[in-house]
Amino acid sequence: MKIAVLVKILPDDQDIQVNGDRTLDFSRAKSTVSTYDLNAIEAAAQLAAKADAQLVAVTCGPKSINDSKTRKNILSRGVDELYMLADDGLELADAYQTGRILAAMVQKIGDVDLVIAGDGSADLYAQQVDIQTAEALGWPAINGGTALDTDGTTVTVTRMLETEREVIRMPLPAVVSVAPEVALPRIAGMKDVLAAGKKPVVEFTAEELGGIAAPTIETVEILAPVPTPRKKQIFDAADEGAIDAFVAALREVM
């Protein structure tokens, strides 16, 4: 059995600076693995270990994602192989373009039975790529999984709804995205970190994957929110009715 986990590599949000005109400066931001995808990798690694399956990670994005440390980071987490398309044509790729490319990669890898994705990306959080990838593959998809199991021909997904727990079984091949609580990402051991550099990384070109699809949306601009200035309103608890005024002020803004 072969399981593929979809991973987004993006600039570390801790290092993104906001310019005076509210545009974002990524120049000092190093690449990192999208937070929710760490949970997906862990869930996939645990499932692969249980089902004695091979686990491959699949990622695409601009050239900047092809960073040796990030590759090793992914491969130190129970992943056997990494497949990558690093092409600046994917700089501002929308979910449709990303889903098409990821589906083409999954097909190119071959024999993939199950695709696992994270809850959403840490930057855009569109929660679209899992569904778009499944659509392009023509496979069934389910999202919000909090537990996974497989017998090799079906996948069983548990989802927590508002008042009940839903258990769904789907035939393979299929795409499942998982909620962050599905698994706590491991702290990769030193041995795994040292071994990661020796694991295979396969780099595709856009041509090999049939090219990048035309975008379906146009990004007009990405701006940081206008910061709200502090009101600097001071209530002195010694004053009559100050607490009520304080509560009223809080209510007003909430």
Partner: peptide, 17 residues
């Protein structure tokens, strides 16, 4: 090295947890 940086990141995660 990449490995040293990853180990130190993992160590910080260990301390956080």
């Amino acid at each position: 090295t990449d490995e040293q940086e990853l180990m130190l990141e993992n160590l910080r995660e260990f301390c956080d947890r």
